[in-house]
Design a protein around this nucleic acid. Structure first.
Length: 537
DNA sequence: AAAAAAG
């Protein structure tokens, strides 16, 4: 279409080389517009969804601009704020990938990982600080961090920050920054709250909006599976049959609740599927690893809460399954937008039980589209013969105890990190192989085994649901030489502290090779696109 | 009727 290349945008040779090696030649629209502006020092407000190449649109020019100059102790030069840990880690990966020919130092400041290492990096000084708000504030308040040296501020996924209630934190943080700085703000949508934010944080920003109507929408074929029962087991059966009726290479199963994620993942595993769970109550190291395996193609089904609905760049997802429609209709497009990316085709399937009809109705209303009805062969018959079990959602009988088990667990066991380290010795032992079996074990019985949970069983269940286990130790390779530390902080190493005493820190399988992790196979032409047209209605 | 993020 256009002949513009990355080289035309004013990026330096070192950056270009890394881009080329990553397999990219043609900038996406947002990159084409944003990069020159950013290089010239101006503020940019970018309205773009993930998958439009937004991340590289700021990472590339930032690397270029940071190439000159040096970081001072505790004074990062560039601050990037992200709503979730995974997104922050993803941005960090981009800096590594494209900054490999430049000596930029970087720290990833996210929760769920040890303070110590982060402190060390901060103390030495970093060029780039990528953070989620909570941990950033924490470190700042401990005095480990000075923000008056920040020349560049980037707020990523601003609208999601808003949803998550981070805006007050953001404002607090920005107040500590020097007024003379370059500020880039990215958001998928541009509601008035975000406009206000842009106005107060930025100076004469250039507004870049990439709408990618039509084309993406048709790369996703949507399906809905209406089932007659609200029974949880029926839903899982339906989900499973739907999955089995598809030729899935790589799929994400979205659930609305964290417990559901655990249960559904356990259920799928129990039925022989290669599945693992990811949600915010799981230990960070586990989250990191599961995601990495999924990206590497070592995991077929990612069972996820909406932590994974937005922003994560996972190439090559060919199927998205919704165990239920999302409670907020707009999350639907984010979920299904995980597939059909970069011009590839994708399919989505949403299981809708009678009690889901209402939320499904909202979804239909918002997408203003027809969605194809789908029903795997023999599913209805199977469901009819299914012995009823738990009343899936609402009301129901004396389910009081079983229900409350979920919430009570939330009260205390909720801190995965802590829980993990507390019992670390116990956890460390059996791990190696039990890894992905871990979180499942607890929910397993809840999942599909418990036909009719007995009171006693319920009771005991009530006190364990939360004890997720840590990811496997994996003595695969430990290494992690000191010099590595100054290049970058990897999410992978999140769990080092957990190991008690003599054990080598657990480590992810990947650490150095994550530079290559973004499978750059056929994506030679752009960074992908996505987001159906109806998103911006 | 959810999730996420600090401990």
């Amino acid at each position: 279409m256009n002949d513009v290349t990355f080289a035309d945008l004013g990026l330096g040779p070192n950056v270009l080389k890394a881009v080329e090696e990553a397999g990219y030649t043609t900038p996406t629209p947002i990159q084409m517009e944003a990069i020159p502006h950013i290089l010239s020092g101006g503020d940019v407000t970018g309205i773009a969804q993930t998958g439009t190449g937004k991340t590289a649109a700021f990472v590339l020019p930032m690397i270029h601009r940071l190439a000159r100059g040096r970081a001072r102790a505790r004074m990062p030069r560039c601050l990037i704020l992200c709503p979730t840990r995974e997104l922050a880690a993803q941005v960090a990966e981009n800096f590594e990938k494209y900054g490999k020919y430049l000596k930029l130092t970087m720290a990833l400041l996210i929760g769920g990982v040890s303070f110590k290492e982060q402190e060390g990096l901060l103390q030495r000084g970093v060029d780039v600080l990528i953070a989620t708000p909570g941990r950033l504030m924490d470190q700042f308040e401990r005095g480990k961090l000075l923000l008056m040296g920040v020349d560049y501020l980037i707020i990523d996924e601003a609208d999601r920050m808003l949803d998550m209630g981070f805006i007050p934190d953001i404002e607090k943080i920005v107040a500590k920054l020097p007024p003379k700085r370059q500020t880039l703000l990215f958001s998928a949508t541009f509601p008035t709250d975000i406009q206000r934010l842009a106005k107060s944080f930025q100076i004469n920003p250039v507004k870049i909006e990439v709408a990618r109507p039509t084309d993406a929408a048709k790369t996703i074929t949507q399906h809905v599976v209406h089932i007659p029962s609200n029974d949880a087991k029926a839903k899982r059966t339906a989900l499973r049959r739907v999955i089995e009726s598809c030729d899935v290479k790589n799929g994400i199963v979205f659930c609305n609740r964290k417990v559901e994620v655990d249960i559904v993942a356990a259920s799928l595993q129990k039925h022989g599927h290669d599945a693992a769970a990811i949600h915010g109550d799981l230990p960070q190291a586990f989250r990191t690893e599961v995601l990495q395996r999924f990206r590497d193609g070592d995991l077929k089904l990612l069972v996820a809460s909406d932590v994974a609905a937005r922003g994560l760049d996972i190439p090559d997802v060919d199927h998205v399954f919704n165990y239920s429609p999302p409670p907020k209709d707009e999350d639907y497009v984010h979920r299904i937008g995980r597939t059909g990316r970069a011009g590839r085709s994708g399919k989505s399937f949403t299981v809708v039980s009678p009690s889901d009809e209402k939320s499904w109705g909202f979804v239909l209303k918002m997408i203003q589209q027809d969605v194809e009805e789908y029903m795997p062969e023999g599913l209805l018959e199977e469901l009819e013969n299914l012995p009823p079990e738990e009343r899936s959602s609402r009301g129901g009988r004396s389910g009081g105890s079983s229900r409350s088990s979920g919430s009570s667990s939330r009260g205390r066991g909720d801190r995965p990190e802590r829980g993990r380290s507390r019992r670390s010795s116990g956890d460390d032992a059996p791990k190696v192989e039990a890894k992905e079996e871990a979180p499942k074990a607890e929910v397993a019985e809840k999942a599909d085994v418990a036909e009719k949970p007995e009171p006693s069983e319920k009771a005991e269940r009530a006190e364990k649901p939360k004890r997720q286990r840590a990811p496997k130790a994996d003595k695969s390779e430990k290494a992690e030489p000191k010099e590595k530390a100054e290049t970058a902080e990897k999410p992978a190493r999140s769990s080092e502290r957990s190991s008690r005493g003599g054990r080598p820190p657990r480590d992810q399988k990947r650490k150095d090779d994550d530079l290559i992790l973004a499978p750059a196979p056929e994506r030679v032409k752009g960074f992908g696109d996505d987001v159906p047209a109806f998103l911006k209605r």
